[in-house]
Every structure is written in structure tokens, then in C-alpha cells.
Design a binder for these strands. Structure first.
Lengths: 228, 228
DNA sequence: GTTGATTTAATAATTATTTAATAAATGCTT
DNA sequence: AAGCATTTATTAAATAATTATTAAATCAAC
């Protein structure tokens, strides 16, 4: 679940925003002044920050600039005056979007959603997809079931995790060590060789012809890649 | 220099935009309909795309969606009606920003600048560019794939590393020893002659005519250089 | 305890990399 | 401009590294 930080001194507005965002499935926290907003924002715990320009103690400009120096988190600036927008933009603070009060709550939610989507697209911290369909393959994450051309294949836990992770990041190469760390946990003790064996079994089950894999490609010297 | 594509059927507007952007140091090309806009946009040669919603042949929605499926390039949507913006946002096409006609040219430039800056912040850190495109060459780092004029060529690990490193630092000459140290590690034991052989194989694969290299130049007595 | 999943280990198969030897090209000296 | 020294290109063979496969051992769930 995505975490959002609202930095806003007007309690009524902050809570209104929070309610709307929570209704759309986000986890929200509120900071009531620039000081605490900066402190929380710098923690790096949030996926997006909504930042009011006019704040007690430290103003929105400086909060934005300082957070931006350290983190790439999307920042949405909220201003009372439309004219401010050009000024802010001109300052090049690194805010990602600007929205003027009063705004329709739906608009805020739409922008939040759009920015989170873009950020995911660019950075690749993907949220779990419920279903993935590629070519003849259907991976149902909730049910943990996999179908190849409408024919169910039974996978073990590790096989499923492996397939799901690769399919979630298609076309990207992951080394055996990366896969091992991703799926077994970084402190797991063991050999990346086990990845090889699981890939082998997985292919046996989902590939028509194991010798020329259509889904999972071997990238020699680099790792494996799910072909899109 | 950043390349911008304007997809806009109204010639007057397109040229106005172009003039302003060129005055700010951008290289601009114009596509006058959805068809050619899509084709150019899909080439991946541009750093940003300005896309009008109403277009002949293929509308802006579909152009945006299709480009977005393949590329992460920032897309700015231009609409005539302010009311459209919420509709577009709701569709989740993956556009990065929205601007309504008529707009002050300064505003367009400011947004273009802001989006390019954000994009660089997130992606274009020279240390690990996700994709490099030069002339007909596309190097996809994450997928570890290389295309020459949309034709994939299969490279080995060392060949890929070599090409990627050189392309990341175009126009700069590296001696064989420097390359060996960079790619093999400073404590690697071995001969820089192996670099020569890898360059040879790399050229064989990516150069049209191996005798007159278009990508990797030999600088006699100094080393190799990726020609920009 | 039995079953099935996972890991380890050993070996085979495949592919990449390096070495080495020779040819070709370039620059320098006279 | 010819000849020599140096650097780079080319090629093939030898070596090294990586991945695939298989079977047996270990582990975990029921």
C-alpha cells in the first residue's frame, strides 16, 4: 500500500484530503507545519508528498528544495493563488506538479494516481499485479495459479514466485544472485545454483519445447529474462 | 542537445511552439498528423513529445497510449478544452502533463524544461543510463540487448560491456589498458590484447562495413573511441 | 512416517574468453 | 620514397567459464 504524506497547516483541508485518499486505498499521514513536514519527508518513508506552499515555521519552498536534494519522491505543491504556479515553476524547486486551492478532491486523487504510476514506470518499483497475461500465459497472483494456453500447470511455491517475478519485470535481465536475493531474502544462506534448478523445472512445466524457451530466456553471462 | 517532437496539425501553432523551443536551445521536429507522429514517436529518438489531442488519422489518445507502451519518454498533452483534462487523466494514458490552448509560450517552455529535468533526475544519471540511442544504434541496459536499425544483434557479456561503456562516454578515447582495467577490474591478470579481439568481434556484429567503422573508431597509438 | 518440495552436488554440454601466431597498417627515420 | 619499428587487425586453437541436466540428499508439511 502506498504511503502519502500531507504537509498542510489547515486541519480541515488536510483531513479532507486524507479522507479522499484513504478512500482510494492510500495510507496517509499529516504534518501540520513545515518543520515536522520536512522531518517526516526526509525520512524517505513516503511514496508521494502533498505539500502546501504556505506553512508555519518553514515554508513550502524550502521544504521542497531540501527533500528534493535527498529524495526522488514525487512532490505535489498546493497553492492558494493560481499566479503562484508560474513563480514556483520558475524557481525550479523540483516539484512534480502544482494544484490550486480550491480543488475538487477527485482531481487531487487523479493527480496522485498519475504521479505514482509514472514514478513506478520510471523507477520500476512495481506494485503487485493481480493478473499477468502474456502470449499464451496467464498468471493469477491471488489464486497462485498458472495457465498455459488455458491449460493449468501446477507449480510449486518457488517456481511460481520465480515466474511471477520475472513476468512482472519482462525483458529485464536478472542475474542468478539477484533472483536469489529477491526471492529467498538477502540474508538467506545458500547457493544461486538452486535458481538454475528451479528455472529448469519451471521451463519443463511451462515451455512447449524446453530446448528453445519461449518464455524464459537465458542471457549468457548475465542471467535470465522473461521475453515479452 | 535535447530533441523534442511536436505532434500538431495546426501549422501555425506547431511553428510557434517550435520557434519558442528552438529559441531555448532545443532541437525540434514537427509531425502534422497522428500517423506520422506515432511513427516518429515510436522511434525513441526524442527526449520529450508534445502531443495535440485532436489529430487527423490517429487521435492523440491512441498515439499516447501506443508510445507509452514502448517508451518512457515524457509526453505533454495539449487540449483545446480545459474540461478534457480530467477526462484524459481519468483514462490513465500515461501522459505526463496537460496544457490547454491557448497557452503562453513561456509556460510551455517552463513545463518542457521541468519535465526534462525530472526525467533526468530519475533516469538519466550518466552512470547507468537505461537506454542509449545513437544514430541507428539502441543499447538497452536493463534488457542487455542491442539493436542496429531495429535489428537485434546478440552480443556476449564482454562485447556488451565494452559497447555500453564506450557509448556511455562517446567521443572520448580510451586506451586498451584503460578499457581492460575498467571492464576486467584492476586486479585482473591478462593482456590488453584481449580487448583488441573483443573490439574486432564487436565491430563484426554492429558495423555495417567492418573496414570503415561507423561506431567504434581506432585512434592510432591512443586507443578506441565511440563516435558520436 | 510419508509425501512432495527444495537444495546440494556431480557431471555433461554449451558458449565465451584468452592466448598466440601471423598479417596488415601506420608512423617515423633516413 | 624505402625501410624499419610499432601498433593494430585477423584468425584459429586452446582454455576457461557458465549453464543444463540429473540424481541423490535434505528439509518441511501434513
Amino acid at each position: 500500500m502506498k504511503q502519502i504524506l500531507i504537509v498542510e497547516d489547515e486541519k480541515i483541508i488536510a483531513e479532507l484530503e486524507r479522507d479522499y485518499l484513504e478512500a482510494h486505498g492510500y495510507k496517509v499521514e499529516i504534518a501540520a507545519d513545515g518543520d515536522s513536514g520536512l522531518k517526516l519527508g526526509m525520512s524517505g518513508e513516503y511514496d508521494l508528498i502533498i505539500l502546501d506552499l504556505m506553512l508555519p515555521r518553514i515554508n513550502g519552498f524550502d521544504v521542497c528544495r531540501q527533500i528534493r536534494e535527498k529524495h526522488n519522491v514525487p512532490i505535489l505543491m498546493v497553492t492558494a493563488k493560481k499566479e503562484d504556479i508560474d513563480v514556483i515553476r520558475g524557481l525550479g524547486l523540483g516539484a512534480d506538479d502544482y494544484i490550486t486551492k480550491p480543488f475538487k478532491p477527485g482531481e487531487l486523487v487523479a493527480r496522485v494516481k498519475a504521479h505514482l504510476a509514472r514514478y513506478e514506470r520510471l523507477i520500476g518499483t512495481k506494485e503487485n499485479k493481480e493478473q499477468i497475461r502474456i502470449h499464451g500465459l496467464l498468471i493469477d497472483y491471488g489464486a497462485r495459479r498458472v495457465f498455459v494456453h488455458d491449460q493449468e500447470v501446477i507449480l510449486t511455491t518457488k517456481e511460481f514466485d520465480l515466474l511471477y517475478f520475472l513476468a512482472l519485470n519482462p525483458n529485464r535481465v536478472f542475474s542468478k544472485d539477484q533472483l536469489f536475493e529477491k526471492l529467498w531474502g538477502m540474508d538467506a544462506l545458500g547457493d544461486a545454483q538452486t535458481v538454475t534448478v528451479h528455472i529448469r523445472k519451471l521451463r519443463e512445466k511451462i515451455e512447449i519445447d524446453a530446448s528453445k524457451s519461449q518464455y524464459i530466456e537465458t542471457v549468457w553471462g548475465a542471467g535470465y529474462r522473461f521475453r515479452l
